[in-house]
Design a binder for these strands. Structure first.
Lengths: 111, 111
DNA sequence: TTGACATGTGACCATCTGGTCACCTATTCT
DNA sequence: AGAATAGGTGACCAGATGGTCACATGTCAA
């Protein structure tokens, strides 16, 4: 399987996205730390972390008997660049800003 | 299944990514047009397009007996925003630029 | 050095997914 | 009207995926 495929397959699972979210908040966690936050056995979490690492979305560093996990944002950025045209990127952003504005529960002011 | 899940599941398949690539190059194609570019039966392509549409990655417009398909970049942008920190986005971009530079087959100059 | 702790492997199974087909409806053209 | 064209549905099957467990290796601390 090629790199590109690995990244998208890795992102396809909600548990793996949750793991990325945890690492986005606090980088460098161990398997045991991550397991304690998810309702799943250690083996399940380990499998998911392996896929994330193979996809390059997570990089690791061994420290004694522990293995620290870090989020790598580069593959995510590449996905963005693939389908967001540089010249129309501003439009997409503006659209999202507008959407956020409309969905705000208590608007502070009209703009 | 929630929206988020639909988007990532939709992106997980190489055929569906190829469809998005085709629409990125030329927007507003019909099922038959798209089918002719892929080595798959019409039914397979139709299933994929349905998933892309349910995920909001593709929007459609009927025109007589034809159905035109358009790429919608908004969900892609949201994926980016989820894991790319606004404050470190510059670093990621710089890293990618450096990588592209290093991988250039015939460097024009040293920088 | 012995026991506790952190991580790793291979097998196993229920469920999901990708692709095809027989058959169907709606629209256009002559 | 009748034929050709564009799109749609439900069932089906092989292969991939998610999760668990018994068991194993490497590391730390008393």
């Amino acid at each position: 399987m090629n790199d590109e495929d690995l990244v998208f397959k890795a992102l396809a699972d909600p548990t793996r996205r949750a793991l990325l979210d945890r690492l986005f908040v606090r980088d460098g966690q161990t398997l045991t730390q991550l397991e304690s936050e998810l309702d799943m056995t250690r083996f399940g979490v380990m499998k998911h972390l392996r896929l994330l690492e193979e996809a390059g979305l997570v990089v690791t560093r061994r420290q004694g008997r522990e293995k620290l996990h870090f989020l790598n944002p580069v593959p995510i950025r590449l996905i963005h660049d693939r389908w967001i045209d540089k010249y129309t990127e501003g439009h997409t952003r503006a659209l999202l800003d507008l959407k956020a504005e409309l969905e705000r529960d208590e608007p502070e002011e009209k703009r």
